[in-house]
């Protein structure tokens, strides 16, 4: 399996890189050739120039750091809360039954719509955007954990019971490890959602963060700046996602190896 993966891997990597080069080249020259104005689609070089310029003049590093920090805090809080509530509901069917209509309602409500409310409550600081990220991260994590614990084979639990395991032992030795794959599937989704939550929070109010730069760029009709910020945001999302993938590979080391990108 690993042999075929490396044999296939080489051309796949080359093709992948080629696609990247073609994309950047098309971005650079195609709009000009088709007569699209530079302020609609600025060429790749202009965006790169703008990013360098933003580092020097617009304090891009600072804004990126603020957004990254908010993403990280929101992600950790939302994931911790989602996992905790997910496990709590999973071990207590009564609690789940009683709370499920409200959880469903909150899950259906578009989380980003809370952003203006949080700004009104907490003002123009980090709090509103962290809260939006927390809220948006919470649900996929909770739903995945709850579902995973529910789906554990009854016989597996019975095996533990037959060995005289206590409820706590069943939880830590069977339910928690058995739900890890689903938890990480939830965290992967959550990592990208956390960025969305923070951006919306920053767009709605505030004077720091990449979301603010996005709005600022829009106000100036500075298309290269908007493109540049989108690239930075994508990078943050990518780092968050890869962090989850790395943690997952460590925690789920016992799983059969998958090819990269199989999920």
């Amino acid at each position: 399996m690993s042999r075929t993966a490396t044999a296939l891997g080489q051309p796949a990597v080359l093709v992948s890189m080629l696609i990247g080069v073609i994309f950047v080249a098309a971005w650079e020259w195609l709009p000009g050739m088709l007569g699209v104005a530079r302020f609609i689609i600025p060429p790749a070089s202009a965006v790169a120039e703008e990013i360098v310029f933003m580092f020097a003049r617009e304090n891009l590093l600072y804004h990126t750091a603020v957004t990254s920090l908010s993403v990280a805090i929101g992600f950790v809080l939302g994931a911790a809360l989602g996992a905790a509530i997910g496990y709590a509901l999973a071990v207590s069917p009564t609690a789940e039954f009683a709370l499920s209509p409200y959880i469903l309602a909150l899950q259906i409500a578009p989380k980003v719509a809370f952003a203006p409310l949080f700004v009104m409550w907490f003002g123009f600081n980090l709090m509103p955007k962290i809260l939006v990220a927390t809220l948006i991260v919470f649900f996929p994590v909770m739903v995945n954990v709850l579902g995973a614990v529910r789906q554990i084979d009854r016989d597996q639990i019975n095996l533990g019971r037959a060995f005289n395991a206590t409820r706590l032992e069943l939880f830590w030795k069977i339910e928690v490890p058995a739900s890890m794959p689903a938890l990480f599937a939830g965290l992967r989704i959550a990592a990208t959602l956390a960025v969305i939550g923070v951006i919306v929070g920053e767009l709605v109010g505030g004077s720091v963060g990449l979301g603010y730069l996005l709005a600022f760029g829009q106000g100036q009709a500075n298309t290269p700046m908007v493109f540049g910020v989108i690239i930075m945001l994508t990078l943050i999302g990518l780092v968050a996602y890869l962090a989850v993938v790395v943690a997952e590979a460590r925690v789920l080391h016992y799983m059969p190896k998958r090819d990269f990108g199989a999920r």
Partner: peptide, 15 residues
């Protein structure tokens, strides 16, 4: 603790 069982499924914990 006097009894142990074994089923058709091996019920080995994958982790």
């Amino acid at each position: 603790s006097h009894v142990a069982f074994m089923l058709q499924k091996d019920l080995l914990l994958p982790w």
